[in-house]
Design a protein around this nucleic acid. Structure first.
Lengths: 241, 241
DNA sequence: CGAAATCTTGAGTATAATCAAAAACGGTGG
DNA sequence: CCACCGTTTTTGATTATACTCAAGATTTCG
């Protein structure tokens, strides 16, 4: 696998880049920034002129309601381009912030759109990526709308572990789980207190161990079952599995 | 506005098609079918070789949980291409069905991908459309996760009326609301009984009138406020507003 | 006109929210 | 290395929103 998270991501999607495509991608001028935890990168309503690639650390997309409640709509890991949408849509409809200290690479929209126009295969791969993001949003609607806390939490963990494994950030049993209980609650649409009690139930059932930011899946089949987890919606390619 | 729903949709997004682009689009071979209400068009797990354009009537995208609960993730109206994703992703992760009797046009994926490759502007417009769909999913996550029934229901109505108006299917005050209370519940992740009580509250507050499938917005500002509705996420162009 | 679907109402229950406060943890600086 | 501070996690008690079950009224459609 390539060492650059973005290229690695393309590879996990089964895209064999030609030398020229690879060069075009790596030649895009980028600006790399190191960010602290809990820092906004862009905000709802912004009209950014660049998008970012997560190189290290974790990010969240979220929306605030007028009454001050927060809903997290996505967690992002290395290789993700959380705000790729802003290259095609003028105004941001969500905010993006860091979850942990993070390193991100900013790429100007013109650069992205030039590469897309020159290499339709890259445009198509990025389009495909945004379609997978959309598939994940759909699954989250189900998670938040029709699953009880226990199942929803198990589901979130399954998804996160699989995505981490796809990017070689987990061995499939153990990985970093960088979000606090409050953040998990904001992702599932439930309160922090209820997250805490639900976590205890998952532990009591012997499905997971969670100490600090370290998650260990003790019973993968059990967790999948409780989480009603079917990875189809992640649209993984064979070699990724 | 053009009489073909798909072309009209492109126009509402501000895309001025050249004669050649228009010809390429209209020359795509399509198969038009008339469907009854509550009929599946494609199902989760399918690997379709074509996508469809809604010409008349209404469709829903939904997912079922293993315990038999249904979550509707999108309502689709004339001009929408609900399963455009399947042109880029192999397996469907949601099911698509009619809500009412409907007329749809099927287009083979090869035809779509050829047009996209020949006209990058069309590819980009379709990409953009899928990004707007994703933005709507994000808003639905908020609706289902962080809004109480009253606010969520008002929000759904605001979104539906605006989308109908954009496609000239509503004057902005009155329009068809083709879903049953059970379907509204499946869209908001609440029970039918609770939808009923919530509807009564919206009526009691003088915000709407709803008789059969006919919705009249009596107090647009009030409904928007209760629904915490900000249309930014629909990414409408100026002329549409 | 009649059957099926949809809507409505009531009563009892469950899941999860809120409020409040204590315990544990993690990082920082002396 | 330890004490300290802010954050995060945990616990308890009370309340609220929404669910389930059940049955009756109304609408829709063939």
């Amino acid at each position: 696998m390539h060492e650059h998270p973005l290229i690695r991501k393309f590879q996990t999607q089964g895209l064999r880049l030609t030398d020229e495509e690879l060069r075009s991608l790596l030649d895009m001028p980028t600006q790399i920034e190191t960010l602290r935890a809990d820092q906004d990168i862009v905000r709802e309503g912004d009209r950014p002129t660049r998008s970012c690639v997560v190189l290290e650390g974790y990010a969240v997309m979220y929306k605030m309601t007028p009454t001050g409640k927060r809903q997290i709509v996505a967690f992002h890991i290395a290789g993700d381009i959380p705000d790729l949408q802003s290259a095609q849509l003028e105004v941001l409809d969500t905010s993006l912030g860091t979850l942990t200290p993070a390193k991100v690479a900013f790429i100007r929209h013109e650069a992205i759109n030039e590469v897309c126009e020159r290499h339709y295969r890259i445009a198509r791969a990025l389009w495909r990526q945004t379609l997978i993001d959309a598939a994940i949003f759909r699954e989250w609607v189900v998670n938040v709308g029709r699953r009880e806390a226990l199942n929803a939490l198990a589901h979130i963990m399954c998804e996160f572990v699989i995505r981490m494994r796809t990017m070689a950030l987990s061995d499939g049993e153990e990985c970093e789980l960088p979000m606090t209980q409050a953040e998990l609650g904001d992702a599932m649409g439930i309160s922090t207190v209820h997250v805490n009690r639900t976590l205890q139930e998952l532990r009591a059932r012997g499905l997971i161990r969670l100490q600090g930011a370290r998650l260990t899946v003790l019973d993968w089949e059990g967790l999948k079952e409780v989480g009603e987890f079917d990875p189809t919606y992640l649209h993984l390619q064979k070699q990724a599995a």
